[in-house]
Structures are given as C-alpha cells and as structure tokens.
C-alpha cells in the first residue's frame, strides 16, 4: 500500500475497474497504412517523374511503377482483411455499404484503385516482356490492349490522392482519439506516400538519369522535412486539449513508445533528410536513406497509431 501515500490528497484513484481493452488497432493496421503509402506513393511520385522527364531517362519506370503498387496494395488489403474478426464478412462492405463511414468509402476507392493499377500492371508487364508467353492467347490479348495503360493512368493518379488520405478520415471518425486531427493526418498521409514513393524509386532507379535522381532526392528531403515539422509541432506544442496532452505523456514519460517514436524520427526523417540534402549524388548513401525511410515510417506510424489507444475512456 506504500504507493498510495504518494498520491496527492486531492487526486482521485479508481479502485475497481474492468481491464483496459489494450491496443485495438495494432501492428496489422500499421502495416496496412505503411503498405498503402507505398502503393499510392509510387503512383504519385511516378506521375511526377513522367511529367518532368523523358521515358528514356527512367527505362523501367513504366512497368515497375504499377508492379510495386500492385504488390504493396495487396499487402495492404491482406492486412486489412486479416485484422477483421470476421474476415469473410468483408463482402458486407459491398453488399451493405454505409456511406457515412470512411471505412466503406475507403474500401470502395481502394478496390477501384487496385483494378486500375492491375490493368496498368498486366498491360505494361506483357508489353515489356514481349517474349514471355509469346503464343499464349491471354498474354496476346493483354498485349493488344497496351493502349489502356495511358488511358487509365490519369484516373489512377487522381484516385491515388483519396486512397492515400482516407485513413486520415477513419482516424478522424475515431472520435475517441483526439490526437488524430484530420487536417494534420491528411497531410501526414500524403507526405508518407511521397516519402516511400520516392524511396522505392531510389532503391530501384540506380541506372536512371542524374536529373531524375536529383528530383527523387528533393522529393524525399521535402516530404520528410514537412512531415517531421508536423510531428514535432504535435509532440512539443499540443497544449490545447487535455486528452491529447495525456496521450502524448505516454511518449514524453519515456519507456517503449519514447524509444519507438524517436527511432522512427531518426531513421525515417532525420537521417534521410541529411543524406538527401548533402549526399544525394552518392548512390549507396541514397539507398541507405531509402531503407531507413521505410523502417522509420513504420515506427512513426506505429507509435502514432497506438498511443491514443492507451488512454482510459471511462
């Protein structure tokens, strides 16, 4: 009973309570957001590169961009599905949609986005590897539709924005967690997509033109800088809401979340920013920065997702 004497006389203590439900949305949802950032980020950054540079400067971009997006989106959908306690009922989102829910809107948008990315992926893949299954009727049919790629690309880019950002609205609709402010989260989601979108191309674009690599370094540097500034603002200057302050106390007071958060900031933001601004002509260092961006973003997302869930609600 010693510790009771350390409680201030005016402070009330809950003496009987139910178990706290703990982390409801955990690592699977972190992975979901992380993979979605890659899936949409490569499309957004890819579109920027295609607008600014000639195709010849980035020879593999046309088929690698939808391929990476396709893989990442499937990882995202996989973790979305297995996080459901009744995964087979996922179909209810399509048969009984409730349109006020950003989960519903997001699921529909992400599904349409995946269809468009799949069209781009299959047409560009079979066109690029023209000898692969040369006589197969399906492959031939897909190759003959190569023109679809350019037709669906603008819609895919357009859809990449809401698909990237809708999770911020889910977080906003999670009315119990005040840390997640829609304005900030919308921009954080977008910046996360640009971070890992550019990091993906830095990893695979070793032979691309120098001007393209400079652009990728610039996108990485700007996106990590802006995102870092937003995190710092929220971390140090959230004086306005008692609940947000109480949530951030879980990081401020040290412990595992403190370590996770600052690991994320160091790997995902500080290191990539320094490398992208000072050593962007060093291929090895840029690849290192890309890898730390992926790891750091996971830590940052995971901390930000979990800390509000530690707060007792009643």
């Amino acid at each position: 009973m010693d510790h009771v004497s350390t409680i201030e006389a005016t402070k009330a203590i809950v003496t009987m309570d139910v178990a706290h439900t703990g982390i409801i949305w955990g690592w699977m949802i972190t992975l979901n957001m992380w993979a979605k950032s890659i899936g949409t980020g490569v499309i957004l950054v890819g579109a920027f590169l295609l607008y600014r540079h000639k195709h010849e400067d980035m020879p593999s971009l046309r088929w690698l961009m939808p391929l990476i997006s396709f893989i990442a989106l499937n990882v995202f959908l996989f973790f979305t599905l297995i996080d459901l306690h009744q995964p087979f009922r996922m179909i209810h989102i399509f048969t009984h949609p409730h349109w006020t829910s950003s989960i519903t809107v997001g699921a529909w948008l992400a599904s349409i986005f995946l269809v468009l990315v799949s069209i781009m992926m299959f047409t560009s893949f079979f066109t690029h590897f023209s000898e692969f299954r040369k006589n197969c009727a399906v492959a031939k049919a897909v190759r003959s539709k190569d023109g679809l790629y350019e037709k669906v690309f603008p819609f895919t880019v357009f859809l990449a924005f809401p698909v990237t950002m809708y999770t911020a609205i889910i977080m906003s609709q999670s009315a119990a967690r005040e840390l997640w402010v829609p304005g900030a989260e919308l921009i954080q989601m977008l910046l996360a997509a640009f971070m890992v979108g550019s990091a993906s191309f830095i990893l695979i674009g070793g032979k691309w033109a120098e001007a393209v690599k400079k652009d990728l370094a610039m996108i990485l540097a700007i996106s990590v800088l802006f995102s870092f500034i937003m995190y710092m603002g929220e971390y140090f200057f959230s004086y306005k809401a008692a609940e947000v302050e109480a949530t951030l106390a879980y990081i401020h007071s040290g412990g595992p979340y403190f370590l996770d958060f600052w690991t994320g900031m160091l790997l995902g933001y500080i290191i990539p920013f320094i490398i992208a601004t000072t050593m962007n002509d060093n291929r090895t260092m840029m690849k290192f920065a890309a890898v730390t961006t992926f790891i750091g973003l996971y830590f940052a997302k995971s901390t930000w997702l979990e800390i509000p869930q530690l707060l007792p609600l009643s």
């Binding site: 439900t21 459901l84 009744q86 989102i93 829910s101 989960i103 119990a176």
Partner: peptide, 26 residues
Amino acid sequence: ERCIGCAGCMMACPYGAIYMDPESNT
C-alpha cells in the same frame, strides 16, 4: 450478424462502451 469485426466502433466510441464479444467475435 452484419458486423465484420473491424473494431472501428471501438475506436470511435468516446466512452469505451463497446467490446469485441469473445464468443461471437463481433
């Protein structure tokens, strides 16, 4: 019967009033 077990409601209720039933998993 309709619930897919996404736990969105548990994240949204500001009063912690919802639980995931360990028998029905909804």
